[in-house]
Amino acid sequence: MSYPSEWTLRRAIAFLAALGVGVATYIAVEAAGGDAPSCLAGSNGCATVARSSYSHVAGVNIAVFGIVGYVLLLASAFFADDLARFGGFLVALGGFGYSVFLTYIELFKIEAICQWCVGSAILMTILFLLNATRLITYTGAEAGPLPDRA
């Protein structure tokens, strides 16, 4: 089985993490301005989720935690050592786990779906898979871009 090079994985992680920063920042900015993110097709799900008591942890909008997580993932993509591989994996794991929990809350507690939150959950899922692949395949490899492994 062939794996993408670490350089390819890092570029993909950086791209998706940057997208995640954008999504989380949009949600946080809308919430800070007293609004809710706009859902497509006239759905009310985004407003319902944004106004729910689950949208804040210890008084802080969870989108802020999302921004921090995506920025850390973005930073991990700039380095090619074991610390970055392991750190990126742990952040992605935490983000993925929390996304699973939030999706459960949306479906079964709030009973509304926020398209932006689903988008972020999909990004976190892909980032978790990419970081897991990076960790398993390249841990112990020398720093720096590597050729493709066959």
Binding site: D82, L90, G97, L135
Partner: peptide, 30 residues
């Protein structure tokens, strides 16, 4: 280098189990 790699991957596996446990507890409590 091989031992270090093995140790890091074991830590990662432990983190995965911990994350699964935390998510399950959060869901059950809610």
């Amino acid at each position: 280098e091989g031992d270090r790699r093995k140790q890091l991957l074991q830590l990662a596996a432990g983190a995965v189990f911990l994350a699964i446990a935390v998510v399950l507890v959060l869901i059950v409590v809610n």
